[in-house]
């Protein structure tokens, strides 16, 4: 379980967010929404241990983020908004490369299976020749090599075709339901958010988001 207590963050004098508290149970999918600059990516970065909060505490399976940072990271997958892959290498080589650096050892067949789970079958193609959707799928597959419990995805479906978007969404749902993964992700696509998420966290004071989200009937937390 992920437990977030009274989290605050500001850059200099600018307050990004204040007193955010929520918890995520295994199998939950949480959507992070808000206007641009509201602090979605910052919150995701803090949850990924890549930034530190000013106040508040976070614990993952009772592992404190401050004192057990390295241990916490073994349970986290962070899928950045940009494509963090080797463009000159093939899908196979990218998977093999990151597997060598991963906490968990996986065989070639397991890696291939991981790719086919996200509907990525161009095993021998160079990343730079793949479509945007394929790259996003590989970006996700690489992050899952070490079997993390908490998945943090920063706009994982931005700028890709509807089919790939659906496939990624379905896979995330499957991961949550069948494997009990905790998933937190940001998106600007409200349909996607309402379809996939069990709970929605709205950051920022823009009433536009509040109104739309109220209509969805989902469990909404606003900060």
């Amino acid at each position: 379980m992920l437990s977030v207590e009274s989290l605050s963050k500001s850059y200099g004098k600018k307050e990004i967010f204040k007193d955010i508290s929520f918890s995520v149970q295994p199998g939950n999918i949480i959507g992070l929404v808000g206007e641009n600059g509201a602090g979605k990516s910052t919150l995701l970065s803090i949850l990924a241990t890549l930034q530190s909060p000013e106040k508040g505490s976070i614990a993952l399976f009772e592992l404190d983020y401050k004192s057990k940072k390295r241990e916490v990271r073994k349970h986290i997958a962070f899928v950045p908004q940009d494509i963090a892959l080797w463009e000159d290498l093939t899908v196979e080589e990218n998977m093999m490369f990151f597997e060598k650096l991963s906490w968990k050892k996986k065989g070639k067949e397991e890696l291939k299976q991981l790719c086919s789970n996200v509907k990525l079958d161009r095993w021998n193609e160079r990343v730079k020749t793949l479509s945007g959707g394929m790259k996003r799928k590989l970006n996700l597959a690489v992050s899952l090599i070490h079997d993390p419990e908490l998945l943090l995805l920063d706009e994982p479906t931005a700028g890709i075709d509807l089919k790939s978007r659906k496939e990624i969404g379905n896979y995330l749902k499957k991961l949550a339901l069948e494997n009990g993964k905790m998933i937190i992700y940001t998106s600007h696509d409200m349909d996607e958010i309402t379809n996939l998420c069990d709970q929605i966290i709205c950051i920022g004071e823009d009433p536009f988001y509040q109104e739309i989200l109220t209509e969805t009937g989902k469990n909404i937390l606003s900060f």
């Binding site: 997958a77 950045p80 963090a84 892959l85 080797w86 650096l101 991963s102 906490w103 992050s143």
Partner: peptide
């Protein structure tokens, strides 16, 4: 030394500098 790839190393056995 691609900053975008640095975030990956945080969740791996080796830090960027160690790599």
């Amino acid at each position: 030394r691609k900053p975008i790839l640095f975030s990956r190393y945080a969740f791996m056995r080796f830090s960027v500098k160690s790599y």
